[in-house]
Write a protein that binds this DNA or RNA. Structure first.
Lengths: 243, 243
DNA sequence: ACGTGTCTGTGCGCTATCGCACAGCCGATC
DNA sequence: GATCGGCTGTGCGATAGCGCACAGACACGT
C-alpha cells in the first residue's frame, strides 16, 4: 500500500481530464489530489459553497435532491466521464442538490480557486466544461421525463446501465434500499423489479451485490431514455470520453 | 399598428437583457429583432442546429421532450427572465428538447453568431448567461423531483404559479389539453385537478381561460418545488431579474 | 338559426405504486 | 456457534393516475 500503482493514480482515468490538452492539464497536475471516495461520502451539501470540485475515476457520484420530509430523488449521476461541482463555474457557487458517492472508488479533487483560474482563461477548458454541463443537463431532463412516463422496471434498467457504463466490471455493490433512495421509490418496489430482472436472467442479485449477466437484455428492456442520454454524451464529449 | 409602442418594443422587458451592462447591450441593440410568438410556435426542434436565440418579453416558452410514442413532458419553462437556446453557448448547438410557445406574446431574437461573438469576449454577458443556465438547471432538477413525488394537484399549482410569475396579469390562455401535454398527464386528470382548484376558489376556469383568484392559496397548496425554484432564481439572477 | 368542431365534465374498470406488517436470511461479531 | 442487525422477500388493502367512452357546452362561421 505504500507504492500506489500509477494505473490507479492516473488523472487521465477521468475522461474529462484526459480530454484537456497538455499545457492546460500540466498547470493542474500539481494540484490534483487523489482521493478515496467511500460509499455514502457526501461531497457537497445543498446550499453549501464549494471549495473543491471532484473528478471521479473509479467512483460514481449521485446528485440527489432531498426533500423536507426526507424523501429523495436522483437528478443525475456522474462518473469517470465528468466533474462534480459544476455550480462553481456556472457562477452560483452552490446548488440545491447533494452529491453523494453511490459506488465506492477513487477520484481526484481540485481546489475551486485553481479550477476557476483556468476557467477564466476562456480556453479549451471552459468549452470542455460547458459541453459536459450540457450533457449533464440532458441527463437531468431525461430523468424528469423518465420519472413521469416510465415504469419502475424500465427505470431500474436505465439506472443499472448508467451505472455500468461508469464502472469497470459488470457488477456493482448496492443495496436495494440505496437504489430505492436514488430512484425515489419504495424499497419493496425495487425488490419486485430486481426479482423480475433476475427471473429474466438479466442480473444476479445477492445481498448488496448485483451482477449484470445480460447487458443487451437490459438495453432492450429499458425505455428510450437510456439510449437518448448515452447518444447525447457521445455526441457532446470527445471520443475518448464516450461513456 | 404602424407605430409600435416603445413599451412593447423595449428589450429591457426581458430581465436578462435588462441586466446586461450598457456597452455590451449597445452592441446588440441593432441586431435585436422584435418577434411575435404565437401560441404553439416551435422555436426549435430536437436535434436541430440553432440559428437564433430568443429573449421572451411577454411570451412564455416551454422546453418539452417528445417521446417516440408522441407523449411529452415539460422540462422547464422560460419567460421574460430568460433566454431560449442555451445549447448554443453551451457548445452543443442543439438539444434533444423542443421549444414551444406556451403562452402567446412577444420577444426578441438574436442571430446565433452575434450572441456567440459577445459570449466569446468572456465578459459580463458570459457570466450572466451561465448563472441563468444554472437557474434553469435547478428548474429542470426540481421538475424531475416533482414528477417523482408529488400529486397532479400540486404539480398543477406549481405550473400555474411558474406561468403566473412570467405574465403580467393573473389570467392565462391555456386549454386543459395543452396543460396535460406540458405536465405529461391525461387531459381528464387536469380536468379533475382544475375542478378541485375551482371548487376551492383558487382559480376560475372557462374554456381555455384560467384566472387565478387566490394566489396565496395556490402557493399554500403546491409542493415545496415551486418555492425552491423561485428562491434559486432570485438568488442567482440580478435583483431586477427576480421572477 | 344552425351545424360543426373544440373544449370540458363524468363514469368505470384497470394497473402501478404506495404504506404497512412481518417473516426469513445472511454475515459479522463476540 | 449463538446472537443481532441489516438486507431481502412477500402479502395484504388503499389510492392515484390511466385508457376509454361518451355526453354536454360553448364558440364561431355560414
Amino acid at each position: 500500500m505504500i507504492t500506489r500503482s500509477s494505473r490507479m493514480m492516473d488523472p487521465r482515468l477521468n475522461r474529462l481530464l484526459a480530454a484537456i490538452p497538455n499545457p492546460e492539464l500540466a498547470r493542474w497536475t500539481p494540484f490534483l489530489e487523489p482521493v478515496e471516495l467511500p460509499l455514502g461520502r457526501v461531497l457537497y451539501e445543498s446550499g453549501v459553497r464549494l471549495s473543491y470540485v471532484y473528478f471521479p475515476t473509479t467512483a460514481i457520484v449521485s446528485l440527489l435532491y432531498v426533500m423536507n420530509d426526507g424523501a429523495s430523488a436522483e437528478i443525475a449521476v456522474v462518473g469517470h466521464e465528468g466533474i462534480v461541482g459544476i455550480s462553481l463555474f456556472m457562477g452560483g457557487e452552490s446548488t440545491i442538490n447533494r452529491a453523494v458517492v453511490q459506488s465506492a472508488g477513487r477520484g481526484f479533487r481540485l481546489r475551486a480557486s485553481v479550477l476557476m483560474q483556468e476557467f477564466n482563461r476562456s480556453g479549451p477548458v471552459l468549452h470542455l466544461l460547458l459541453r459536459y454541463t450540457q450533457a449533464l443537463i440532458t441527463q437531468m431532463a431525461q430523468t424528469a421525463v423518465c420519472n413521469r412516463h416510465h415504469t419502475l422496471d424500465q427505470q431500474l434498467c436505465r439506472w443499472l446501465l448508467l451505472s455500468l457504463d461508469r464502472l469497470d466490471g459488470n457488477s456493482l455493490v448496492m443495496t436495494q434500499q440505496l437504489i430505492a433512495n436514488m430512484l425515489g421509490v419504495r424499497r419493496e418496489g425495487v425488490t419486485d423489479a430486481a426479482g423480475a430482472l433476475q427471473k429474466a436472467e438479466l442480473i444476479r442479485y445477492q445481498r448488496g451485490n448485483i451482477t449484470v449477466i445480460n447487458r443487451d437484455g437490459l438495453e432492450r428492456r429499458t425505455c428510450e431514455c437510456y439510449r437518448v442520454v448515452k447518444q447525447e454524451y457521445d455526441r457532446l464529449l470527445p471520443a475518448t470520453l464516450a461513456t
